[in-house]
Simulated scan of single mutants.
Amino acid sequence: MSSESDIRQIVTRLLPAPEPMPDAGDLVADFVLEELGNEPPVPAAVLIALVRRGSGYNVLYTRRSGGLRKHSGQVAFPGGRIDPEDHDAAYAALREANEEVALYPEDAQVLGYMPYYYTGTNYFITPVVAIVEPRAPFVPNPGEVDAVFEVPLDMLVQEASYQTFRIVHRGQKRESWQIDFEGHRIWGITANLTRRFRDTVLAGDGHVA
């Protein structure tokens, strides 16, 4: 997954624009850990950054700060809520990446979008896929991020890189994908999104457009 033809194939498997939010009653949450209330879904965006390194690409991840109120210490893609002043999901994802790890938006070329992902915490996530050629090292914002790391794209396309993560929460068994890399454990929403990216975009097992 390092040639220009690979990137062209990736583009053909992405959506040219974010999917609109359907009626709330049509949304089905993945990896539910708590009962969803009657609040409307929260629009959010994450950046799946394909960081060019030499002749190949890595995918950028963060480990959230241990001081955060929600999901502290967990691995995530850069991203967050889409604010009213954000132009679109890509703008929000790149803004958040700049705030979290000092990724310059000008260093990113947006390739397209994956279908929305609705979480068990009531977030309506638009995954934004972009090539990034960083002009400087990524620097974690200590208020939000404890660490930043990259996983080779060639590893993420391999079936053997994925295991099953199991958790018992309030007496209920839940499962997600799991990826282990150099002491980092990726699970839950982030692992499920990575697997979906692998299946539909990298491996091309399903066409998303």
Rank of each mutant, 00 (worst) to 15 (best):
Q74C: 04
I131T: 08
D180V: 04
R53W: 01
T190N: 04
V101M: 06
P16W: 09
F149D: 03
H169I: 13
A97W: 07
A89W: 04
T121K: 00
D154V: 13
E34N: 09
A160W: 03
D6K: 03
R166K: 11
E144V: 06
L202D: 11
E19D: 15
P22T: 04
D180W: 01
V129W: 11
A136C: 06
Y118I: 10
P18C: 06
V46F: 09
G206H: 12
Y118C: 08
H169T: 12
A203T: 13
V51L: 11
G206V: 12
G73N: 02
F124R: 08
V128M: 01
A136D: 14
A191R: 07
Y116H: 13
L94K: 08
A92E: 07
D30P: 00
P142A: 09
L156V: 04
I186L: 09
H87T: 10
R95E: 01
P115A: 10
L14Y: 09
D23F: 02
R52E: 13
E133W: 00
L36S: 05
R195C: 03
E106K: 13
A29T: 08
K173R: 10
P152C: 05
G171V: 10
P41C: 03
P43A: 07
N38D: 15
Q9I: 12
V129P: 07
A49V: 04
L36I: 15
A130W: 05
V46C: 12
A209L: 15
G73A: 02
R174D: 01
F181G: 05
F138D: 03
E19G: 14
M114E: 06
P41M: 05
P115M: 08
Y123P: 00
A147M: 06
V168D: 11
K70N: 08
R63L: 11
L202A: 07
A108R: 01
L33W: 13
G73F: 00
L50K: 03
Q74R: 14
S5P: 00
N192C: 04
M1S: 14
L202W: 14
T62I: 15
L27K: 11
L27M: 15
R52S: 02
P40Q: 11
G188R: 11
A191E: 10
N141S: 14
Y118N: 07
Q109D: 07
R195H: 15
L33T: 15
T190P: 05
V148F: 09
V32W: 01
H184G: 01
A92G: 07
Y118R: 09
G54T: 09
I179P: 03
A93I: 04
M114S: 05
L47G: 03
A209F: 08
V201I: 14
P41D: 11
P152F: 12
E39R: 14
P127G: 05
R95C: 01
V132P: 05
M155W: 11
G143W: 03
H184M: 04
N122S: 10
H87Q: 09
S3N: 12
P152N: 08
S5C: 04
N122L: 12
R8P: 00
P105L: 07
L153F: 07
A147C: 03
Y117R: 07
R52C: 03
R195N: 11
E182A: 11
E96Q: 12
V148K: 06
D205R: 15
F165K: 00
A102N: 13
G73C: 06
I82H: 01
P134H: 05
E4C: 01
N141H: 12
Y118V: 13
